[in-house]
Design a protein around this nucleic acid. Structure first.
Lengths: 240, 240
DNA sequence: CGACTATTTGATAGGACTCAACCTCCGTGG
DNA sequence: CCACGGAGGTTGAGTCCTATCAAATAGTCG
């Protein structure tokens, strides 16, 4: 199977076949991580670029009082720390939420790649801009949406992202996030995150069994959560 | 006076004198904006890079129900939309919160500049990474800090940023944010933002009169809000 | 099967919101 | 020079959403 990074970047830019090949060849050293293990920890020196091949991971910060906030989910095809090697140390951690395979790309390999293929460089920059847009939208959720809206919005977003790398099946997709992790990402307690999920189920908006989430009514889910996909900058952003 | 972008970037990288000159020369077309006016609006085509010369601005999104969330403050020396021209349309708005002078740099000018001066390019990328780190920290605040901690944290952050461009005076600085704007950035209502400010005053942590904010006890303000400056990646990050 | 981890449910508490009134600046203009 | 008006700030009382605490019920993996 082709590297999912290629599918992802194709959403932003048409890639030529030699560019695709090149992107495929960057996957060399692959490392497996167990569920709930640390890929990089806050304070670590920055040493390379990570590409998620399989599994889900997340960025997070832990406060001195033990509270945790997840600031992003990373799914297959996502590349993280594209340019962190500019900074000395990580200011946040990255950890897996499922078993995961990640490819570690040396900084100089990245530099060579983007130097040689301007198309790839552009596509990677687009993807960085979208990551930033996602963070802004999370701030909007955390600051201005209530519990139901936050969870619904996250589901819409993750569905669109999973769909962009074609890992969805119809309106359902693998969503391996526990209630505690969900809570840490939408700024709720695990208990209330669970109740909120229940509410969405009772309103027949989703079904969620055994890590498989099915969206039963995307339009209502989107309007309820004021989800507007344009910030994801996915070609059309059309809902089919 | 030299362009504040230079001061800002000097925090990340030593710049040679010809690089400084070059950075100074990018300020050509300057545009003045009245207080509370839109610099760019969500949906607008992306057309250039903005450098704040004087005054404060902010990025924000407005939800269909009228609620607003500010996702970043822009102060003199801040450059926004460094690479937005990669995307077609703005997914958020930028507006002034004071009268402001901003320089609009054409995309090709930016490309030429970074192409010719690798140091500048590196420094600009660092600053982008720091902007991302700031957004993550805002997510942490919005998701996991209570009202008092959020406001205190924002004050610590803005003080450090203002100080990095040397616009502070001792432990006080110009902080032209109204309670309504503060509320829109920390995810509170204006009324509660006001009460929170009052609480900080009563605890002798700050004084705040006529848009001038003085930090009376930085250490307590920082520990109260679990502020750790390392995410700002400012050289030492030492508090003097 | 047994020890976890994850989810669900119930009852109560509390932090932030809401609504409303009032106050204080300031700039404007009669 | 003072009245007026509007934006921003302060205060009070009551409500609601989400947190907390606690316990019981699945699920899951070795």
């Amino acid at each position: 199977m082709e590297n999912l990074l290629i599918r992802k970047l194709s959403n932003y830019m048409d890639l030529l076949s030699d560019e695709r090949q090149e992107l495929d060849s960057i996957v060399q050293e692959t490392k497996s991580f167990a569920i709930h293990s640390a890929v990089v920890r806050e304070g670590d020196p920055t040493n390379g670029v990570y590409l998620i091949l399989t599994g889900w991971a997340c960025r997070y910060k832990v406060l001195p009082d033990g509270q945790r906030q997840i600031t992003a989910y990373l799914i297959p095809g996502d590349m993280c720390n594209q340019q962190v090697f500019m900074l000395k140390r990580m200011d946040h951690s990255i950890g897996t939420i499922t078993p995961a395979a990640v490819s570690i790309i040396p900084a100089d390999r990245m530099i060579a790649l983007t130097g040689k293929y301007p198309h790839i460089e552009r596509a990677l920059r687009c993807s960085t801009l979208v990551d930033e847009a996602i963070m802004r939208e999370w701030a909007v959720s955390l600051g201005r949406r209530n519990a139901l809206e936050r969870v619904a919005h996250l589901i819409c977003e993750m569905f669109m992202r999973v769909r962009a790398v074609e890992l969805h099946e119809g309106t359902s997709f693998y969503f391996p996030v526990t209630q505690a992790e969900l809570a840490d990402s939408v700024g709720l307690t695990p208990v209330h995150a669970g109740r909120t999920l229940k509410e969405l189920r009772e309103q027949d908006l989703i079904s969620f069994e055994g890590r498989r989430l099915t969206i039963l009514n995307f339009d209502r889910l989107a309007s309820l959560s004021m989800f507007n996909a344009s910030y994801l900058h996915l070609g059309q952003g059309a809902w089919t």
